[in-house]
Design a protein around this nucleic acid. Structure first.
Length: 532
RNA sequence: GCCAGUAUAGCUCAGCGGUAGAGUAGGGGACUCAUAAGCCCUUGGUCGCAGGUUCGAAUCCUGCUACUGGCACCA
């Protein structure tokens, strides 16, 4: 079976999930479901990033242990994914023993990979750096933190000059290699980053790459992390912990092996990292490929980065400090997870930003799903039952409608192409075409008139057949985005979905009888505005 | 400061050298199988601003403005 491996970013467990977290997971889930529907061996990996200073501080504020704190937040994420129907195959939690061991094994290997010329590690070195340090905020200050008078403001408390030793991962010397990788991938038509306009951004950043990556924090400053295997005075700092989740929770990875095991590579060669634009540069676009190179991955074994945009709120960035975050849990409760999933997939072009609007969420649900697809299914089944007791006769499709099914087949294959490219919105537009074409056919052929004229009996059978087959094709195209609703439609139609291969059945099965219509998408209403 | 990107109908966006497009919202009509849904027709734009190239520019070039992203600087 052809493999398909997709990962999401792991979310930081320092607050409740917002709409952006939900969007990224729904996108991954939809693509995973599409490939699964296409008969592929799919692995979807998602999870949470649980270490770090902010978690440590939040736990202290609440007077509980960090593990207890992250377990609580993690439960919120898991409950939301359950509510939104996110079906994942691997769950990455960075405080899991499996992950800690993997990170430590990787650090050990890189530390012990000695350069014969110098006798030191080829990848990691220890060095002292100095700077201004705020004791109260427990962080080094840059000149950004200086006030207009050039001094550090009172919010930093006591600021002292401090020297600190840390471990560093060599990055800068891999600049040319990374530029070559980016260019080669683009030239081969398999860009390192999708959408392609982000490749330029990444390339610019890589060209200016200098300096190495600090991968440790002294325990005196940060205790909530993975202890360094060869120096217990330090814990692993963010990216060497978080990024490694893609390996530690992937099936078959062995951190000790010089070359990744074939069992693992089988899946890994197809890997797509579904991430937000905020963590492309430098984490996923620079640190990660160099880390993989250090771990013995060849250029052909580098991932593809699928970079999505953000949901803005009335044109403004969503941020906790602005207090304009959107709670996906509340939206799912208010409108149902299907309406939310459909909105998130249909109203943003993958890779770009969009403006979030509850009004638009309701509108898209009502126009596309309730009035469009839902009503098509309902009216088709009603007429089939009313005029043919659920079983249209097997007839030759009337000549003036014969192009209809061919157009549906074309729409289905275009849908597949868009979905393979991660363009879910474009795929859903093809679904809309199938629905609109069928609804137009109802009015053009007027089955209620045909039913009154015995001479038109065969024509009526043909129209009903096309309508039911169209509803089936539409449901087939809805399966990855709204699996439960699509299955309910197929149940009412009493049909299996079409194959995604592009060919569709020319008629109904022998002895076909449709099921009972039941509205699948009741219309939604916006809550009444609060009384003035 | 540098490098990109975006600016087209109320809204979301497509078009990227040859008479301004789609969906949605607004208006009108005919119908009745249906979730008062659907179908047909239709109003609506000096294509951010100013120049230039061209027989012809939303489309190419230059400058400007606004917004977005990235990087850098912040002695």
């Amino acid at each position: 079976m052809k493999p398909f491996f997709i990962t999401t970013a792991i979310d930081y467990t320092n607050g409740a999930p917002h709409i952006g977290h939900a969007y990224e997971k729904v996108l991954a889930d939809v693509l995973a479901r599409f490939h699964r529907q296409n008969g592929e061996e799919v692995f979807l990996l998602t999870g949470v990033d649980q270490h770090g200073q902010k978690v440590q501080q939040s736990a202290e504020r609440e007077g509980i242990a960090p593990q207890e704190y992250v377990d609580g937040v993690t439960a919120k994420f898991l409950a939301l994914w359950e509510k939104l129907g996110i079906r994942f195959d691997g769950w990455a939690a960075t405080t899991a023993d499996k992950h800690k061991e993997c990170v430590r094994a990787i650090l050990t290997r890189l530390w012990e990979d000695k350069d014969p010329a110098t006798g030191g590690s080829r990848w990691i070195y220890k060095a002292a750096r100095s700077g201004h340090y705020s004791v109260r905020q427990e962080q080094f200050l840059t000149d950004k933190e200086r006030g207009p008078d050039g001094e550090f403001g009172p919010e930093w408390g006591q600021v002292e000059f401090r020297e600190e030793e840390n471990y560093y991962f060599r990055l800068a010397e891999h600049r040319e290699w990374l530029l070559g990788l980016i260019d080669t991938r683009s030239a081969e038509g398999k860009p390192f980053v999708i959408p392609e306009f982000r490749v330029v951004e990444l390339r610019n950043a890589v060209e200016k790459l200098e300096g190495d990556l600090c991968i440790s924090r002294p325990k005196s400053r940060l205790s909530w992390g993975i202890e360094f295997p060869f120096d217990p005075e330090f814990v692993t700092y963010v990216w060497f912990d978080a990024l490694v989740n893609y390996l530690s929770f992937a099936p078959g990875y062995d951190p000790a092996a010089v070359r990744p095991p074939e069992e693992f590579l089988h899946l890994w060669r197809t890997v797509i990292h579904d991430i937000g634009k905020d963590i492309l540069i430098p984490a996923h676009g620079v640190y990660w490929p160099v880390m993989l190179k250090a771990l013995g991955f060849t250029d052909a074994e580098m991932p593809t980065l699928l970079v999505h945009g953000w949901w803005n709120i009335s044109g403004a960035k969503m941020s906790k400090s602005l207090g304009n975050t959107v709670d996906p849990d509340m939206l799912a409760d208010r409108y149902g997870s299907a309406a939310l999933r459909y909105y998130l997939m249909s109203d943003i072009a993958t890779g770009r930003d969009a403006d979030f609007s509850e009004e638009r969420l309701v509108q898209r649900h009502n126009v596309d799903l309730a009035n469009g697809l839902g009503n098509l299914v309902n009216r088709s089944l009603n007429m089939t039952r009313k005029y043919r007791e659920g079983s249209p006769n097997q007839v030759v499709i009337p000549e003036d409608f014969s192009a209809h099914l061919a157009a549906n087949a074309a729409a289905l294959s275009e849908y597949s192409r868009f979905m393979r490219e991660g363009q879910v919105q474009a795929g859903l537009e093809r679904l809309g075409d199938v629905v609109n074409r069928a609804n137009a056919l109802v009015d053009a052929s007027a089955p209620w008139k045909l039913a009154k004229d015995p001479d038109q009996a065969e024509r009526l059978d043909g129209v009903l057949t096309i309508l039911i087959l169209s509803a089936r094709t539409a449901a087939t195209m809805l399966l990855s985005v709204l699996p439960e609703a699509a299955e309910e439609i197929l149940r009412q139609l009493a049909l299996e979905p079409d194959s995604l291969a592009g060919e569709i059945a020319p008629g109904l099965p022998e002895g076909y009888r449709c099921g009972e219509p039941q509205p699948v998408f009741p219309r939604l209403e916006l809550p009444a505005p609060p009384a003035a």
